[in-house]
Design a protein around this nucleic acid. Sequence first.
DNA 1: GATGAATGAGTGTTCATTCAT
DNA 2: CATGAATGAACACTCATTCAT
Lengths: 202, 202, 202, 202
Amino acid sequence: MPKLGMEPIRRRQLIDATMKSIDEVGFSKTTVNSISRHAGVSPGIIAHYFGGKGALLQATMLHMLNSIKHEFQVAIDAFPEKSHYDRLIAIIKVNFSAHQISPIAAKTWLAFWTHALHEESLLRLQKISESRLISNLTYELRFLVGLRKARTCAKALAALIDGLWLRGALSAKGIQAEESIHLCTTLLSWMIEEYKGNDHPN
Amino acid sequence: MPKLGMEPIRRRQLIDATMKSIDEVGFSKTTVNSISRHAGVSPGIIAHYFGGKGALLQATMLHMLNSIKHEFQVAIDAFPEKSHYDRLIAIIKVNFSAHQISPIAAKTWLAFWTHALHEESLLRLQKISESRLISNLTYELRFLVGLRKARTCAKALAALIDGLWLRGALSAKGIQAEESIHLCTTLLSWMIEEYKGNDHPN
Amino acid sequence: MPKLGMEPIRRRQLIDATMKSIDEVGFSKTTVNSISRHAGVSPGIIAHYFGGKGALLQATMLHMLNSIKHEFQVAIDAFPEKSHYDRLIAIIKVNFSAHQISPIAAKTWLAFWTHALHEESLLRLQKISESRLISNLTYELRFLVGLRKARTCAKALAALIDGLWLRGALSAKGIQAEESIHLCTTLLSWMIEEYKGNDHPN
Amino acid sequence: MPKLGMEPIRRRQLIDATMKSIDEVGFSKTTVNSISRHAGVSPGIIAHYFGGKGALLQATMLHMLNSIKHEFQVAIDAFPEKSHYDRLIAIIKVNFSAHQISPIAAKTWLAFWTHALHEESLLRLQKISESRLISNLTYELRFLVGLRKARTCAKALAALIDGLWLRGALSAKGIQAEESIHLCTTLLSWMIEEYKGNDHPN
DNA sequence: GATGAATGAGTGTTCATTCAT
DNA sequence: CATGAATGAACACTCATTCAT
């Protein structure tokens, strides 16, 4: 007798196992066996629910992208539409939230970024994530540094975020959330100081 | 007698082929066959000169580290010992020099960073590279922002450099050297403006 | 569900195939491919059930040791505890039983003996087999030639058995069971004649 | 300028190196590299003087056969033609001479015996050696146990010699020359006692 | 729905042989 | 004479995938 509604449970179980395996042994040593062992199921189940290893990896990346997308939405919606500064701080904080700076998330992100360079299917997902941070930052910065400078400032802020994130991911101490947030907010305040009143947002 | 003195030639040839292969098909699809094909030699030659694939990968990373180390040295030595600002600009520019922002270098760096997370031998090399940029920046910044703030500013500047570099590597347009250098120098000038005269360098 | 309980079947199948391959092409030309071909399965199955070629070779040697151990036990138990002479004849006959003198067994034994000299894991198994024949012979001989001479006589008898066995294995005619048994029993009777009544067994 | 008369020197050097390598790492791990390293020459030299690895192995076995053949001749010629008993003792002693029971000789003999089973060229050499011991023993035994029993006694004596030799080669203590010679001479004396005067030698 | 037995292509590595020097 | 660089086939082993149960 088939158990009903197993699909979403199994899919989630396998996605979590994929991240655990990448964290533990790395992307290139992550096999269908290492994943299924982490999930406590048989290797064959991966083909059953995803069709193959490649599709599971894609689904895992998509899951991570949706997670951070949702975190962004919650963070932004916590403030009134016009609290542009508060929203920017919130966006920065999401990038260094407990969920994002965990070693497991950091290693998996880095692995996917690297792999995406040579895998069309992952590259598309990668680009969506890349541009969302920029457009979120740009939108709010328009009201603080003006339309002309917003995009440049967004690029700098996004780069600082990713750079701190990358250096943290590679360091033994991990990502230092508080220090990272402090550096980002300092840069933000300098930008606002420099460019405020330059022009109006539209 | 056989051809003598082939060792340095072949070693360099194989290191170049390794970078080309990583650029072309990615780290995880780079095999001894793909490398030897790029080098135009037989697969067995890798074992002959390096003992194995792992040692060749290590040698390749070491070669890249030494390249950038040498570029740094040349750049810094171009200015008198006390031209701290000029030296900082030089350090920034080296990171976005033609040699470093080529797609081949960018992809190989990223691949090694990711792989280093689960490979002790690469991790050690990684840490050397990581700390050198910080210490170079910190040394010069002491004279411009004071001892107390030098390290924090160095961390921020290094993170911005790496972040711009990472985003560029992942983007289709590649790394935009001029724009990146501009953003870095802007951050640098803000730092100097903010902290100058705070304290003396020692 | 997949076919269950295949493990003991496959293991036995692969052990038999290993002996066949050693018989046919020799130890040094026995590869995972030659073994899997004899077993009618794919090469990968060896890693699946034994972890590697080395473990399969060990398992094969262990299987042969257990076979002869069992044959010894059956042969000895066929006679009352005090029929020392009959038991000695039985031990001799087991060494030249159809199962032991088959070309396949002879070649495999010789291959393992040679290989054991440079392979710790096989050497341990080798020593067990070596000493068992001596101790079996010594025990029974005590009652026929006395305690003092039992061990020396056992050594001579064991050496004669192994020597006949070795010469037979190397000769085109194979091992001549009847002639070999006759020579061994002749030696045994001379020993008894010479040393009987020398001392009591304890 | 070519050095003259290098051929016999190099051939001997490589044969010795082959035995050393078999002693050290075993037959199956003996490669042209391991041999040339022991000889202190380049791997290519093997092809130059022997044509290939196989021919060197054959030459090594032939060298060992000639060595023991020569030892036999010297040992037999030391006694007057009619000293049949002394000559038999001498034959036994040669088999356990310092030169034959060295671990290096023992391991190499065993390796060749095993390998000979699947290599026609070695098998022919093997058979010559095998039958020479038998015919030497048979010839002398005719005068002590009579024509009819000589061959059977020779087979038993040869088997005892080889068996003691084999067990010694495989044991950690090595071959015990004195004990082995004692066991062989005891068997010889029993044979003479039993069969003397049975018939005349021709 | 789920298993795990089985496959076979692909990997890194070893190694006898060849050959230009 | 002698070298050692270079080859490429053969090897043990890994692993994504398939499939009978």
